[in-house]
Amino acid sequence: MEEIYKKILLSRYDKAIVSGKRHQKVLIDLNFKGSIVISKGVGILRKKRKGERLLKTESINDNAGLRFLFVGRIIKLKNVELLIAVFNELGLSLTIVGDGTERKELERKSKSNIIFKGYCSNEDIHKYYKEADVFILPSYSEAWGLVVEEALYYNCALLLSQDVGCLSELLLDPKTGISFNPYSKESLKNSIMKLVENYEYYKANAIEFDIDNKDREQVQSYLNLLND
């Protein structure tokens, strides 16, 4: 019944703007007949002042290993429990920034290689991205993922769940990282090891990704829709 209501609502429109290919497919599956514009975003990233962005061009310290980062709410939907299980086994460095209903229980289960930083304001969040090498988002469902844009702005390679909305636009096409099945522990472990082995390749692609150009394309998509 819900799908019928959606189809009736969509039949009243002849244009739609969506963030990415995943949302485009939703409209197509609902038999939307109008034109669809892909914006490649849901908002414009708040960037730091010129010169404050860190280019991670230095060599990796093999003794220390790569530094992994998660930023977001610590709730079941974000699937942070999977990160805890895998990083407990691998012993790699993981920093978790955010708070939520699952935090205390997951913090209790975590080994010393996993550090919880708690809530962080938007003004201060950049310091964690600048310290990280790899950004990881294991969500069961993520409409887009503005945190992924933030991570790319600071040149982090990406490990994204296959159910993250920006997968095609920010990971697969620019080849900035690896995707994994959020329901599979082995999929995440294998993806982590593959990224570790090929980190320089994904890091180089993250550095080359032009977030400013993506923002310009996003704004232009809105203007095109208004002027069409």
Rank of each mutant, 00 (worst) to 15 (best):
L30Y: 12
E102M: 14
L172P: 00
L83F: 05
N31T: 09
N227W: 10
E142I: 04
K50D: 07
D124P: 03
I28V: 14
T101C: 11
Y13S: 09
S161M: 02
S39I: 10
E123V: 07
N198V: 04
N79Q: 04
N155D: 13
E131R: 07
N224Y: 09
R22E: 12
D210C: 00
L82R: 03
R22A: 13
A151S: 05
G118M: 04
V80E: 05
N63P: 00
L82E: 03
G100R: 02
V164W: 04
R73T: 09
I178A: 02
E52N: 12
V134G: 01
K50N: 08
L92V: 11
I75Q: 06
G51N: 04
A151F: 01
I115R: 15
S221Q: 05
R108V: 13
N205E: 05
L54S: 10
I44N: 14
G177F: 01
Q162M: 11
V86F: 03
E123S: 12
A16T: 02
I125R: 02
E131L: 11
G34S: 03
G65Y: 06
K33P: 02
Y183S: 10
A85D: 15
A132I: 00
D99Y: 07
I115V: 15
G72L: 06
V86D: 01
V148F: 00
K33R: 12
L225W: 00
R73L: 08
N122D: 15
L167C: 01
D133V: 03
K25L: 10
Y201V: 11
G177S: 05
E149R: 04
E105G: 08
T176S: 05
L188K: 00
V97N: 09
F87W: 07
I178C: 01
N122Q: 14
E2F: 14
E150R: 05
L195R: 01
L83A: 03
I178S: 01
K109R: 15
V18L: 09
L90P: 05
D133H: 10
T95G: 11
L158V: 05
G98Q: 06
L55M: 12
D99V: 08
Y5E: 14
Y222L: 10
N88K: 09
F70V: 07
L159R: 03
K7G: 07
I75K: 06
Q162D: 14
S11N: 12
L172N: 13
F70W: 02
H126Q: 15
K40F: 09
G65S: 06
L45H: 04
I114N: 08
E52C: 07
S110W: 06
Y199H: 07
K214D: 12
V219Y: 07
N63D: 13
I207D: 00
N198R: 09
Y129W: 07
A132Q: 00
I44F: 13
E52Q: 13
R103T: 09
D14Q: 13
N227I: 11
Y13I: 07
S141W: 12
S191T: 02
L9H: 11
L172K: 14
D210L: 00
R12W: 10
E81G: 09
V42K: 08
S121T: 15
R108S: 15
L90I: 11
I211E: 11
G20S: 15
A157S: 10
